[in-house]
């Protein structure tokens, strides 16, 4: 992995708290969406779309349209399209099954919001959406890094997207989750306009023999704060997260600031 895959930027937002990490990005940039996460209603189906679009705009500063043509998008999600499932279901009940809202139905896939990003930003590389309870963002980042390391693509956006309202969000500090974490990964010389900010030293998923019989922990996805901590020190040297997926695999991500 060393000398192969680099992190150029990382952006994130959970509720109203934005996170930015990149050489070329201003540390005092304004919050990308001061509405998202704070005043969500259950019918604001585009809250995660708005948040992820604004953050992606930041992430892709200095990346040309031609470079986006082959860029991959690897996204992990815990809740997937469950919020939109509820909205379509409500339409089925209100309007009668087969006369329910087609606009709502077309959003009932975990890949819908990532697909919207491909359309908005002209991303035409591979798209993979992973569903994972504990480590959706790390899983996506690790898999994207391994694709780049294997020479299968030059660059990718990888991270996690989640949106769910009310008490279903088993998050201790919020009645809703609207959370985006995205990083830009690429080879060393992928971009001429921007410089990498950190090097990926290790990105792997390891399985522990026989642990699949363990129950999956019910807590909220823990990798978002872990990744934010990983990248939050401006003078970091080498930092590593070992995140237990709780279901037979451990995600390991180690980065070194350049």
């Amino acid at each position: 992995m060393t000398d192969t895959v680099y992190m150029y930027a990382l952006v994130g937002q959970s509720g109203t708290k934005p996170v930015y990490c990149a050489r070329h990005m201003s540390a005092d940039a304004p919050p990308p969406d001061d509405r998202a996460g704070s005043n969500l209603s259950s019918r604001e189906i585009n809250a995660i779309t708005a948040q992820s679009h604004k953050l992606t705009t930041l992430l892709l500063q200095g990346v040309s349209a031609a470079q986006r043509e082959t860029m991959g998008l690897f996204i992990g999600t815990r809740y997937g399209s469950l919020e939109d499932d509820r909205i379509f279901h409500a339409s089925r009940v209100a309007d009668g099954g087969r006369f329910a809202s087609p606009a709502a139905f077309r959003r009932t896939l975990p890949s819908t919001v990532p697909a919207e990003l491909t359309i908005a930003f002209g991303l035409r590389g591979p798209l993979i959406t992973f569903a994972d309870r504990q480590t959706p963002g790390m899983l996506a980042i690790i898999r994207a890094a391994q694709w780049i390391a294997g020479g299968r693509m030059n660059s990718a956006i990888a991270g996690s997207l989640d949106f769910i309202t009310t008490d279903h969000a088993d998050s201790p500090d919020s009645s809703s989750v609207c959370r985006t974490l995205l990083c830009l990964l690429a080879t060393r010389d992928a971009f001429s306009e921007i410089q990498p900010w950190a090097k990926i030293m290790l990105a792997e998923i390891s399985s522990s023999c026989g642990s699949s019989s363990q129950d999956v922990a019910q807590s909220d996805a823990a990798d978002f704060p872990a990744i934010v901590r990983l990248t939050s020190t401006s003078k970091l040297s080498t930092r590593r997260i070992d995140q237990d997926g709780g279901n037979g695999h451990t995600c390991r991500l180690e980065i070194q600031a350049l």
Partner: peptide, 18 residues
């Protein structure tokens, strides 16, 4: 996870939905 438990598969588990 339910399928992995049922069949005793202990390696990495993931769902892909595209």
């Amino acid at each position: 996870h339910a399928l992995a438990r049922r069949f005793g598969l202990g390696g990495p588990q993931m769902v892909i939905s595209t």
